[in-house]
């Protein structure tokens, strides 16, 4: 028996108001006519128009997108491999160090990760730019991916893959045809997580970007330091909209896939029973 009281209802309402109110205000005021961000002067979409004219923002957005796609794809491959190692590889020399290196970046302050990578790139004499941001983002994002994927792999019944091997599949084919489809939802959410982490990151990108490459967060950060502007509000609104559509779309997609799988399983049970 649960007792949903007035107290519960109030704390939920206030709590979610606290979580969402700032973003709602930001979105509303991105449609404000006035240059003054706290005074409402009528509805207008002119800041979106100005944003589309702003070449610096567009360039930064393009760099961010390139870095995000490249880093999250690399991170997904490496993170999935790391998850397979963590769950399946058993004992090997340096295993403790390996799992330590997977979990440590999750709790490492960004300023330290950024500083250490910058010092590495400088001592190796690597020119900083898009490439170094991709390397940096891949490194911390792969750890998140491997945590997500390994939590799914633990529940995976390994005898399925063994059966495929017994039936003459090569190890890689068995992985591709049996394991991968089953862990696919975790791999996809790992990719999405890595992508949003990369889009979001300011600190590590600032350290590893060098003067030649600017990502959107770096651009927003330097603009925000000068104060609130309706143009930034418009940009933030667009980013919030893209994330909301993406998250809701994926959750609907995974729900449908789960339903389909359930139907297939039932059909298979009927056919065999």
């Amino acid at each position: 028996m649960r007792r949903f009281t007035w107290f519960n209802a109030t704390s939920l309402t206030l709590g979610f108001a606290f979580l969402y109110m700032p973003m709602v205000i930001l979105v509303i005021y991105s449609f404000n006519e006035s240059k003054l961000v706290t005074v409402w002067a009528g509805f207008s979409t002119k800041w979106y128009g100005e944003l589309m004219q702003n070449q610096a923002f567009l360039d930064a957005a393009w760099v961010t997108l390139k870095v995000g796609v490249a880093a999250s794809t690399l991170a997904t491959v490496l993170g999935t491999m790391a998850a397979l190692v963590l769950v399946r590889a058993g004992r090997f020399p340096g295993r403790t160090l390996f799992s330590g290196m997977i979990y440590a970046p999750l709790v490492m302050p960004e300023v330290i990760t950024g500083l250490s990578l910058l010092l590495l790139f400088i001592s190796l004499g690597v020119d900083r730019g898009v490439f170094t941001i991709i390397l940096a983002h891949t490194t911390f994002a792969m750890c998140y991916v491997s945590v997500v994927v390994s939590s799914r792999l633990v529940t995976f019944d390994q005898s399925l893959e063994e059966a495929a091997l017994d039936l003459g599949c090569s190890a890689f084919t068995a992985f591709r045809l049996v394991t991968l489809p089953i862990i696919a939802p975790a791999v996809v959410s790992g990719w999405l997580l890595a992508f949003t982490l990369s889009l979001d990151d300011l600190v590590i990108a600032s350290f590893t970007a060098g003067p030649s490459a600017t990502t959107l967060p770096i651009k927003i950060f330097s603009a925000v330091r000068l104060g609130v502007s309706p143009e930034i509000n418009a940009l933030c609104t667009l980013m919030i909209a893209i994330v909301a559509i993406g998250v809701i779309g994926t959750s609907i997609g995974t729900k449908r896939a789960a339903l389909r799988q359930k139907r297939d399983e039932q059909a298979a049970a009927r056919a065999t029973g």
């Binding site: 700032p22 930034i232 980013m239 909301a244």
Partner: peptide, 15 residues
């Protein structure tokens, strides 16, 4: 809110 940019969520409080 996890999925929305951290920077945007902090920025929203300035106004």
């Amino acid at each position: 809110p996890f999925w929305t940019s951290f920077l945007i969520r902090v920025y929203a409080w300035i106004g």
